[in-house]
Design a protein around this nucleic acid. Structure first.
Lengths: 223, 223
DNA sequence: TCAATAGTGTCTCTTAGACAATATTGA
DNA sequence: TCAATATTGTCTAAGAGACACTATTGA
């Protein structure tokens, strides 16, 4: 470690990383290998290292890369949690981040897998997490749903090339609300012309009419 | 001061406090009386004191109370700013808060007025602020406008009792967009029945038909 | 031909904007 | 009565949901 001075207050970053797997919304959890809360499940996270982190967002990206080998297409600050009692080690600040992983990279986790990991189904979330992570996860999930309901496209959860039906299913899975196919596509044409582009001549085939493949335009952001 | 240990990283809170004055949106600025950026204008703020602050939100409220004598009806976390270079004193974290002051309390500022203060007109904002506060103010302002445009009522900027026209003018001032009186009132009736209540028998009088006075319902939150 | 899903068209209903009409006061 | 602003009503246009229709493939 490159830490030189002890941190006071203790500053950590915690990441709620979501993806879609088997038509279900999942979040990545890690089992803690150290005290406090050793053996408990928690959001993946780590301690700020001022010697190497340019800022807190960079710290979140570093943690996901070094601990899990992941470079994530979206990382967004959600909120802080702070106080003297939320971490037994003392007065602490945690910044929570919302991150998205493309569904075809769900098995890309490599890195120094010091911790046991699990993709937990959001709908079955009854497990109590370490620290105040249950609440942090709730906030990140709420923000994800709010944005998708507000018509922001979660393209970073899809493969590079995808069909419009895949996109529709992804949104339905996140929000829990069914979409009308016709109205959904009308909205894409009217309001997302600059977000999506058809991949010329590429189609997904099956026992049906081939489906046009689409991709996010360059520099698309989940904003 | 009750600080016992020096902070590392340095943790501060900065508050973008908005109100309406003379039909204009204003933000409270303070002139810094200490280094760094001595003599520069900045958002009011202060350093976290883990010995007395329950959390960062409490720190923001304490700073506004002790430095300016204000107890604010709304205080909301916006975002963090962090890094090694944004404050010459070293690696720092600042949490920005959005706060609202009722327009009839614009002169309520008392407290230990160690700093010179000014209500700066948002539309004339060309002044460069200390640290990265210009950007922080932009973010807070954007969030305020986003919420008001998304139909959240800024009741905390109005007096306890107000007319619907006052509310309409307030919203128009924040967003910069004119509202249709009829459609606006229809929206209030349809979507804000639980946010507003008429004050029975109380009217604002003038050279015109008296205007019903309204108040925010108990526990109304700007959310 | 049929099952299956892609993709499009159309009808209707709701909602929001535009604008007009009525209401009530002080001067 | 008039000026001024509060409050309400109505017409219309745009957008969204419901639903049906057509298109294209593999089996």
């Amino acid at each position: 470690m490159s830490k030189t001075k002890p941190l006071f207050p203790l500053v950590t970053v915690d990441i709620a990383l979501f993806t879609i797997d088997g038509g279900e919304l999942k979040v990545l959890l890690t089992k803690r290998s150290n005290v406090p809360f050793k053996g408990c499940w928690s959001l993946p996270g780590g301690v700020l290292d001022p010697a190497v982190d340019d800022n807190l967002l960079a710290a979140a990206n570093r943690v996901m890369l070094t601990k899990l080998g992941l470079t994530l297409p979206h990382m967004e600050e959600i909120s802080s949690a702070s106080g003297a009692t939320r971490d037994p080690r003392g007065w602490s600040i945690s910044m929570t981040y919302l991150a998205l992983l493309p569904m075809d990279q769900i098995h890309a986790i490599a890195g120094k897998k010091v911790d046991e990991i699990e993709w937990a189904n959001i709908r079955e979330r009854r497990r109590k997490l370490a620290f105040d992570h249950s609440g942090l996860l709730d906030q990140a999930l709420e923000q994800l749903r709010r944005k998708v309901l507000a018509n922001v496209l979660p393209l970073h959860m899809l493969p590079q090339k995808f069909t419009l039906t895949q996109l529709q299913r992804t949104i339905e899975t996140i929000t829990g609300m069914p979409l009308e196919k016709s109205a959904f596509r009308r909205r894409l044409k009217d309001q997302h012309a600059s977000d999506l582009e058809a991949v010329p001549g590429e189609y997904e085939r099956g026992v049906q009419r081939p489906a046009q493949l689409w991709r996010a335009t360059k520099d698309y952001r989940f904003h």
